[in-house]
Nucleic acid binder design. Structure first.
Lengths: 108, 108
DNA sequence: GGACAGTACTACGCATCGCGCAGTACTGTC
DNA sequence: GACAGTACTGCGCGATGCGTAGTACTGTCC
């Protein structure tokens, strides 16, 4: 009984959403997602998602050598990414309301 | 750009929701899901889900020989299934509102 | 009466993607 | 100088939805 399956196809969206305001590096994105309520998200999943989004041209990246730890690979959302974010958010909302429709009258 | 990933972990829920009122056989469940807005759901996915739920003890089944076509294998939700439905529905709502939180301010 | 569409189900293998775990590497602390 | 915290990479696994093919039965239309 876990939420991991629910994340499928939605983690991209969540990561893009988190990056929409400020650039972030992997470890930081994980923290922001968890702070946002996605407590169970695995770090490997996030790093993987960042790489996928980067390879898909949704993100740009730059490395910043940190003075208190290893280097940090920052990711920044670009126009393509913003477009995708808007699209995916819309798709999510539509899907969620469809499912809510199916669930209506189901006692919680 | 498809919704198939969004269905992950939610199809169980949708199928249980559809069966909560009336028993149904596979082909019929597919139609009800599509009528409910899940237009792209594959029939093989639904049959697979029904079998999974049955094996997990959430459903009982009985075969009715049809007079206008092949036999129909009806599925009926039982108490275990209803419990699971309530649980999953609650989990879904919680997850959905978490994601909505992350998405707030994202222009649609 | 034979091809075809519709109904109903099964089985096989594939692709996606989140996860667990191990490993690397650097910094600061006790 | 072992250990915890930070930061990232890579490998293989497991769950699950999908495509396709195959079986089987009924009714229709030429």
């Amino acid at each position: 009984m876990d939420t991991s399956q629910l994340l499928k196809g939605v983690l991209d969206l969540a990561v893009l959403a988190v990056l929409r305001k400020d650039d972030g590096y992997g470890y930081d994105v994980v923290r922001r997602l968890r702070a946002g309520g996605l407590n169970d998200v695995g770090d490997a999943s996030v790093y993987g998602t960042l790489r996928r989004l980067y390879n898909a041209g949704m993100l740009t990246s730059y490395v910043v050598p940190s003075e208190e730890g290893p280097h940090r690979k920052y990711y920044s959302i670009n126009e393509t990414g913003r477009g995708r974010l808007a699209e995916s958010a819309e798709m999510w909302r539509s899907f969620a309301s469809t499912l809510d429709g199916l669930l209506e009258e189901v006692a919680a």
